[in-house]
Design a protein around this nucleic acid. Structure first.
Length: 154
DNA sequence: GCCAACGTTGGC
DNA sequence: GCCAACGTTGGC
């Protein structure tokens, strides 16, 4: 199957591109997704080797901070079973887990964050899902042209 | 901290 | 199945 491109959001105060680069094998599981559409992208469409735009949200300069790759297929997110976790979901069961995650591996950090502000200025990206009004998805597809354009900006 | 936009929940 | 109430996201 052809390689796909994705954008995944993370709050850098919680987990940044630098944090990912420092993890063992520069790989970490992407826990905490609690939105069905985002889960479905991870569960149904992500393939090992797909490329991820790593987006920093909820911070002074929101934007794309670097690249990662999908390092596993989807498997149950263990935090849904952990009563002490913020991500605990009492309605999920081991037999029928509701939430899934993938592993992601660091690829590169951009020299400068490609800011949301800048992305909005680009005609080439006017149809990008990230930039659509009211978009709140934390995992979303990016098309090849958008991906290549953004990498060209970094 | 504000608030628009959106998703989820649950009563009916 | 409808929809009001509520919770969350995330830019600003």
């Amino acid at each position: 199957m052809a390689k796909k491109y994705w954008l995944m959001k993370s709050e850098p105060d919680v987990f940044s591109i630098d944090d990912l680069s420092k993890r063992e094998n520069q790989t970490e599981h992407w826990d905490g997704v609690r939105n069905y559409q985002a889960r479905n992208f991870m569960r149904d469409e992500m393939q090992v080797g797909d490329i991820i735009l790593f987006y920093h949200s909820n911070c002074p300069v929101p934007g794309i901070a670097g690249l990662a790759t999908v390092a596993s297929s989807a498997y149950p997110d263990h935090t849904q079973f952990d009563k002490k976790s913020d991500y605990y979901d009492p309605k999920s069961t081991q037999e029928n887990p509701r939430w899934m995650m993938v592993d992601v591996k660091f690829k590169k950090k951009f020299a400068n964050v490609v800011s949301l502000h800048y992305l909005k200025e680009c005609d080439e990206l006017k149809d990008m899902r990230l930039l659509q009004k009211g978009n709140r998805l934390s995992v979303m597809p990016v098309n090849k042209e958008e991906y290549e354009f953004i990498v060209g900006l970094s």
